[in-house]
């Protein structure tokens, strides 16, 4: 298992190969389509992230000291971004997730998609992922 920092580095390298926004967006769309499906029973309103233009469901499970996140969205671009966040944070331990610095967002040119002032609510998604981490770390 790679660390959060290592995975971010890999993502930055992946995105560095793309010359323009079209390739970047196509990559995001592919990631969205490839995202492992969430169990239907978790697609409930309690798991919806507030503040997104598209609906995002997030579920977290604590398995052997690690948090496993699953998620879904009705918009494929959002799903792509969600997939990246899951790639970075899922399977890590709670304290690392809670304190993780997600510098890769600026470096892959998706800052505008993740900026707190935008109407997409993905900042809320990161916040929710970290809140789960804080809650689970208290169970440790």
């Amino acid at each position: 298992m790679h660390t959060i920092i290592e995975i971010q580095k890999e993502i930055i390298d992946d995105f560095a190969m793309f010359d323009d926004w079209i390739q970047k967006y196509e990559h995001l769309i592919d990631l969205g389509k490839e995202l492992s499906p969430i169990d239907q029973k978790y697609k409930i309103s309690e798991n919806l992230i507030k503040g997104c233009q598209s609906r995002v469901w997030l579920h977290a499970e604590y398995v052997e000291g690690k948090i496993i996140y699953t998620a879904d969205s009705d918009a494929v671009m959002t799903k792509g971004i969600v997939a990246i966040l899951i790639n970075v944070l899922s399977g890590q331990n709670p304290s690392e997730i809670a304190t993780a610095k997600l510098g890769f967002i600026n470096e892959i040119g998706l800052k505008e998609q993740l900026s707190p002032t935008r109407a997409n609510g993905l900042v809320s998604m990161i916040k929710q992922m970290k809140l789960y981490a804080i809650a689970f770390s208290k169970q440790q």
Binding site: Y25, Q53, S54, A75, M77, T78, A119
Partner: peptide, 19 residues
């Protein structure tokens, strides 16, 4: 999803509303 369409056309300089 309207959001996906809005995101892509924005990159082409088109300002439309989604939501």
């Amino acid at each position: 999803h309207p959001y996906d369409i809005g995101m892509i056309v924005d990159k082409m300089g088109i300002a439309i509303r989604t939501g």
